[in-house]
Amino acid sequence: MSLKERLKDFAGSIASATTNSPDDYSEWSSWTYETHMADIKALWTEVRPQLKRDLEQAEFINAKLAEMFEAFDSGEKDAGRKAAWAIYSLKVERLR
């Protein structure tokens, strides 16, 4: 998978985090909070080393991801969603 495709997947996963906080996942779905957050972490782990130009944005994303995970894990879903929106608003699919 190319960097461009991984960035699109990452952007989509982050977009989902703006609306799905830990207690908002459907019980019938195989998509859970845990699998979603694991997906975000895995995608970022793959994408981050490939970014060569947008290093400042990458550091911002690192900080906001940490903020998002901490907020969601402590039950502060609005703060977690706000951090996800901050990442998504960067237009992460355009990073290089």
Rank of each mutant, 00 (worst) to 15 (best):
F10Q: 09
T45N: 12
N20Q: 11
D23V: 04
L90I: 14
M1K: 06
R6W: 06
Q50L: 12
A38I: 09
E59G: 12
L43E: 11
I61S: 00
W28D: 15
I61R: 00
W31G: 12
D78I: 01
E46V: 00
R48F: 07
S16V: 09
A38D: 11
F69I: 02
A15T: 04
Q57D: 15
A83S: 06
K4S: 12
R94K: 03
E93Q: 03
G75E: 05
Q50H: 00
A58H: 07
Y33I: 00
L43H: 09
D24T: 07
D9Q: 14
R81C: 03
F60W: 04
E27T: 12
F60T: 02
V92M: 15
V92P: 14
E67C: 01
V92C: 15
G75R: 05
L95T: 03
R6E: 15
S13L: 08
A58M: 02
S21D: 07
K77Y: 00
H36W: 00
E5Q: 14
R81Q: 07
V92K: 04
T32W: 13
T18L: 01
D73C: 01
K8Q: 13
V92R: 05
I40H: 13
T45H: 14
H36R: 10
H36M: 13
L55K: 04
A71H: 02
E59P: 02
S26E: 13
S21I: 04
G80N: 00
K82E: 13
S30Q: 06
A71D: 01
S2E: 00
V47L: 09
T32R: 06
L51K: 12
A63E: 12
D24M: 08
W28K: 15
L3D: 01
A17F: 11
L3P: 00
S16K: 03
R96M: 10
D73R: 05
G12V: 11
D24P: 10
R94V: 01
N20D: 06
K8W: 08
S89A: 13
K41Q: 10
A11L: 06
P49M: 02
A84L: 03
T45Q: 15
A42H: 11
I61Q: 04
A17L: 05
A79K: 00
A58Q: 10
L43M: 09
T32N: 14
T32P: 14
F72C: 04
A86V: 07
K4H: 13
E34Y: 08
A15G: 12
W85T: 05
Y25H: 13
